[in-house]
Design a protein around this nucleic acid. Structure first.
Lengths: 112, 112
DNA sequence: TCTGTGTATCCGGATAGGCGGATATTGTCA
DNA sequence: TGACAATATCCGCCTATCCGGATACACAGA
C-alpha cells in the first residue's frame, strides 16, 4: 500500500471529503457524522474505516459512542494536503453544524 | 463526474504521479514519458488519457509525435494541488531527465 | 498508394472498492 | 443475565479501473 497514493485514494470519494470537512473543526462522534451525511450507518462506518486505514483519521470508543478526529499529519505532503483541504473544502452548514434542537424534535433522543 | 474527486482519483496511481512529476519541468513527448516510465506503450497511453480526461494534462499531436504538458489549473484547489505536488513529488532523474546519448547508444534511433 | 512509425483504443482477465441491508460485536443498564 | 443501543463488519451485487497484448488509426516518406 503506497502511502502517497493511499492518501489521494481516500480523497477520491465525495463522502469521505465531506467527512474530512466535518472533522476540520475538531472531533465528532459517529452519530453527528451520520446525521450530517444523511447516509446509512454501515456506509458511514465503512468510509470511516477507510479513512482510518489510509491515515486520515483516528478514532476511539468511549462507552458505546465512537469519536473520530483528523489524524496528525506524518509527512509534509500529508500536512500540505490537509491545509489545502482546510482552505478549499466547502463547509456545509447542514453537515458541519448540527441543530441539536431540531434533531431532538425529530425524535432522536439518543446522542453522544 | 465530480471534478474535485476526479482530480484526486487521477493522483491515486503511482504511474500517474510519476507522469505529472515528469511534466512539472515542461512539455514532453510520449516517447520520453515511455522511456522514463519503462512501461508498455499502451499502459502509458491509457494513463495519459486518464490524466487528460480528469483535467491534469493537455496533449497535442505534431506529425506522428504527441506532446503532453500540464494543464493550466482551472480552480484554486487544482492550483494548490499542483503547487503541493511540485514541492513534494520526487524528481526521479532516471525518469525526469532522459540521457539522449545513452538512448541512442541503446539502439533507439527514433525520437521526437 | 503502400509501408513504416507512433500512438490511441479495445479486449479479456483480474483487482479494488462502492452500496445498503443483515449480522456480529461491544458497552451499558436494569 | 438479558435487553437495548451504538457501531463495526460481512455479504452479494455492481461499477470502476488496472494490466499487457492486440488491433485500429493517423501521419510521413518513398
Amino acid at each position: 500500500m503506497e502511502p502517497t497514493t493511499q492518501l489521494f485514494k481516500a480523497l477520491s470519494e465525495p463522502v469521505r471529503l465531506r467527512i474530512i470537512a466535518m472533522l476540520l473543526d475538531g472531533e465528532r462522534c459517529v452519530c453527528e457524522l451520520m446525521a450530517g451525511l444523511d447516509m446509512p450507518q454501515s456506509t458511514v462506518s465503512r468510509h470511516l474505516a477507510y479513512l482510518k486505514n489510509s491515515g486520515w483519521v483516528t478514532g476511539e470508543r468511549r462507552g458505546v459512542w465512537s469519536y473520530y478526529r483528523l489524524r496528525e499529519p506524518t509527512t509534509d505532503l500529508h500536512r500540505g494536503l490537509l491545509e489545502l483541504l482546510a482552505a478549499h473544502l466547502p463547509r456545509d452548514p447542514a453537515a458541519a453544524g448540527l441543530d441539536v434542537a431540531a434533531m431532538t424534535a425529530a425524535g432522536k433522543a439518543n446522542r453522544c
